[in-house]
Nucleic acid binder design. Structure first.
Length: 522
RNA sequence: GGCGCCAUCGUCUAGGGGUUAGGACAGGUGGUUCUCAGCCAUCAGACCGGGGUUCGAAUCCCCGUGGCGCUACCA
């Protein structure tokens, strides 16, 4: 049996799309499973819309995802070049061959003429296919039109009768009647090939054995098979995989949310989480397994288990899966992935020293369970880095208003100052002791403290996060909170009584004025 | 309009002539904890409709309906 050769053939007219990634993935899995070749070919024949930046982006993103190719840009191979823009003479050669054999003909219709005739056909309720206007021109007529300076395209002569059978690995045989196809263009007036033509020539020349692509291409396939036949090429086998849709059932597009893989990369999705999630869109194992290692996925993947109906892209499930992979990840590895996000915020310097790294590691440990994407770290851990963090106004109103709060904070401050060793265990023991002595439930004691230290109601364990902050910073934050409460008249200072132990005024050194933020997410 | 593809919980799906139609995400409830997250337990939720075939249809066949795609000098 001959070696499996499949390809992914994106056109660089935009950022690599999630749907494109899924197509690339299925091709890659198929190749790897069968120990065949995965080829990357850039279909940049649309000169107007193709951009160099997008080529770079496609290549970078595929690399990031780990979908490595055996032939193509950056690698080379025996069947190159792998950019269609560098193969124009090849397409011309084959077009000439078809011309010579009478299987194609020059068409001199202008776009304007075509448009008008198409409109007319539509008005009359006829199918809007090319009417064969130039199909049977005599040599003299052609020469006349040439002399008039008319530009020509090359059209493929579709037989008027008969049918084309597409053998699809997923859907079985699908038949199309030739007569509904219409003579389509294979070479544009500027000499570049159209998709259907370049695709066939390249797939043949690159010895592609199986074309795996979105099922939006199924209706194009009869045209391509006709070209194979005209050129005396053996067509490959086909597998048209279901498309990915948005929530409303329409083809996935920007209005459903982000569709470019670049977005997910920047947001902090792990490449394998994306791959794993995408593999489940249209494919499954008999036991509906959710998580796969790379080796497992390659081993278990098969086209037979690819479904036929389109799948809705579920952002939430992707997010969940990403979070799962983050939680399962080694903390050290995760911390290193988080650093770029901290740098972007200016929270850590370009060169991370070992003390800073130690802190980042601890923070990573504490926030790991809460991360859904890597960039979440920015919102979750800001208080570790921002000395001047804002207090969630809702949290303040809800938890710091009570009379006992100031005496509690002052008490904690005193005890913390005197702590022989400032670590998690001592902290916990002391804080529990204080809450007991003040006859406060741990909840009542710890919530205000958490807000004093972080500005918010949710987050990692109190002792853990305090330990990371360090004694000095904890004391400073308590002072800062006391000051803030004093200004607001909260926490017992508004009781009207003279300065008693419950008051927030007096005592401490005046810290810088604290900001009160508008209520944000707790 | 023509042609084509598709159809199981809200979503991804398993299953497939006789099943309590299974799992995952999301949602609800309870528990654990200083909060959140997590974790554990638990609940709710589906075979598009109609005909056939059959003792029996969600499963096979046909029709309908719906969704999507193609019908370009885009790919």
């Amino acid at each position: 049996m001959k070696q499996v050769r499949v390809r992914f053939a994106p056109s660089p007219t935009g950022e690599l799309h999630i749907g494109g990634v899924r197509t690339a993935l299925f091709n890659w899995l198929f190749a790897r499973h069968h120990k065949g070749k995965f080829i990357l070919r850039i279909e940049d024949t649309d000169v107007l819309r193709s951009q160099k930046d997008f080529i770079t982006s496609v290549i970078e993103n595929l690399n990031w995802l780990g979908l490595n190719w055996d032939e193509g840009p950056g690698i080379g191979g025996d069947y190159g070049p792998y950019f269609q823009s560098q193969r124009l003479d090849i397409y011309k050669r084959y077009a000439k061959k078809l011309l010579r054999e009478g299987k194609a003909y020059p068409c001199y219709c202008t776009q304007e003429e075509l448009l008008q005739r198409r409109r007319k056909m539509q008005r009359e309720g006829k199918p809007p296919v090319y009417d064969g206007h130039c199909r049977d021109l005599s040599l003299a007529q052609r020469e006349k039109l040439e002399r008039e300076g008319r530009k020509s395209t090359v059209r493929f002569k579709v037989p008027h009768n008969g049918t084309v059978k597409v053998r699809d690995l997923l859907r079985g045989d699908v038949n199309f009647e030739n007569k509904i196809l219409g003579d389509f263009i294979i070479l544009k007036s500027d000499g570049t090939p159209t998709f259907n033509f370049a695709n066939v020539v390249d797939d043949y020349l690159m010895r592609i054995t199986c074309v795996i692509r979105g099922d939006d291409h199924l209706s194009n396939t009869p045209r391509q098979i006709l070209i194979y036949q005209a050129l005396n090429f053996d067509p490959p086998s086909y597998a048209h995989i279901p498309m990915i849709l948005g929530k409303d059932g329409a083809k996935l597009s920007k209005r459903h949310g982000a569709t470019s893989i670049t977005y997910y990369r920047e947001k902090g999705y792990l490449p394998w989480a994306v791959v794993n999630y995408l593999s489940l869109l249209g494919w499954s194992t008999p036991d509906s397994q959710q998580f796969f290692t790379k080796e497992e996925l390659i081993q278990k993947f098969s086209l037979e288990r690819v479904g036929k109906s389109s799948a809705v892209f579920d952002y939430q499930k992707l997010e969940w899966m990403n979070a799962e992979y983050i939680r399962k990840m080694d903390t050290d590895e995760l911390a290193k992935l988080l650093i770029p996000y901290l740098k972007k915020r200016g929270w850590v310097k370009d060169k991370v020293d070992s003390i800073t790294y130690r802190k980042i590691f601890r923070i990573t440990e504490l926030e790991k369970d809460r991360l859904r994407t890597l960039s979440d770290i920015v919102e979750l851990a800001d208080f570790f880095f921002e000395k001047d963090f804002a207090y969630d106004s809702k949290a303040v109103k809800k938890k710091l208003k009570n009379d006992y709060v100031c005496s509690l904070l002052r008490r904690v401050k005193n005890e913390v100052e005197q702590l022989s060793k400032f670590d998690e265990e001592n902290l916990e023991r002391t804080l529990r002791k204080i809450s007991k002595e003040l006859s406060l439930s741990t909840a009542k004691a710890f919530h205000p403290l958490r807000i004093a230290l972080t500005g918010r109601m949710r987050g990692p364990g109190l002792f853990e996060l305090a330990a990371v902050l360090g004694r000095k910073e904890v004391l400073r934050r308590i002072d800062r909170t006391l000051e803030m409460l004093k200004e607001k008249g909260y926490g017992g200072s508004a009781s009207g009584r003279p300065q008693d132990s419950g008051s927030c005024s007096g005592g401490s050194n005046p810290p810088p004025p604290a900001k009160l933020a508008p209520s944000s997410r707790g």
